[in-house]
């Protein structure tokens, strides 16, 4: 078994005929750690997430080189469903709950690939919901009517329903009030403490580096800097570039 939960080797991505979006990117998430992925809009953060989870084709992107491994298994050729089965789950940028479905149904959809029996499904849901007590009271509510913070909780909870070893979080603090960002941050820490490795993409670098062990900084589709979270926090350039910058709402669609 590999000691990496997630390993990305020499990944290059293109959208149609446009310029290369990722250029030979290599990155690792060690087991049990939180790794932060930082960078300006258009740096390729979301593209990397899509390449890892297999959602590139939805956005007209394709891999031109590279390999993605989850728990030592090469998933590069697998469809998104295969990757979820191996143990990868993604909470998409902008929450993206199923608005017409209830909270309970959203969660059930997250466990779809595991084909849980009834009792099993209830047990997993209980375990997921203890991170999100707020959702307990909203189970029959349509997800589209939840607040932004509740939707973010639901999106993370839904991803956790497949009991992933690796969780991809794309901008979980985006557009949320500072107080709710703090709650989200605590939930991420909790989930990580229970053994899930996390790759965290964030505009809010201060939040990300406060909980990550390691960080990568992307620019123009390449890693321009990597290091322990402590090193990055201490770096003056990074502090002036990324820290203290408020999260920008709705930014980074193709970032």
């Amino acid at each position: 078994m590999s000691d990496c939960a997630l390993a990305v080797h020499d990944l290059s991505v293109r959208y149609g005929a446009a310029a290369t979006a990722l250029d030979g990117l290599t990155l690792e998430v060690p087991r049990g750690e939180i790794v932060a992925l930082l960078g300006p809009n258009g740096a390729g953060k979301s593209t990397l997430m899509r390449a890892v989870s297999g959602l590139l084709p939805v956005h007209g992107g394709s891999l031109t080189s590279g390999r993605v491994e989850v728990l030592g298994t090469d998933v590069t050729r697998l469809r998104p469903s295969g990757r979820v089965r191996v143990g990868l789950a993604q909470a998409l940028e902008g929450r993206q709950v199923f608005p017409e479905l209830t909270v309970a149904e959203n969660l059930a959809a997250g466990g779809y690939v595991r084909r849980y029996r009834k009792a099993e499904a209830r047990e997993v849901r209980e375990r997921v919901l203890h991170h999100f007590p707020r959702l307990q009271d909203l189970m029959d509510r349509q997800a589209g009517y939840l607040s932004g913070g509740e939707q973010q909780m639901l999106a993370i909870g839904r991803a956790m329903m497949s009991q992933p070893s690796v969780l991809l979080l794309d901008e979980p603090s985006l557009g949320l009030a500072p107080k709710i960002v703090e709650t989200v941050r605590d939930v991420i820490l909790d989930i990580n403490r229970e053994g899930t490795s996390i790759l965290l993409v964030e505009q809010n670098a201060a939040m990300a580096l406060s909980i990550a062990q390691h960080g990568y900084i992307l620019e123009g589709g390449r890693v321009v800097r990597e290091g322990s979270a402590a090193e990055l926090r201490a770096d003056d350039d990074i502090v002036s570039l990324y820290l203290g910058v408020a999260p920008v709402e709705g930014a980074g669609q193709h970032g």
Partner: peptide, 15 residues
């Protein structure tokens, strides 16, 4: 129903 509601999100759940 999940697919009808949001295709990319359904894909992300492994549907």
């Amino acid at each position: 129903r999940a697919t009808a509601s949001h295709q990319e999100a359904a894909l992300a759940q492994g549907i």
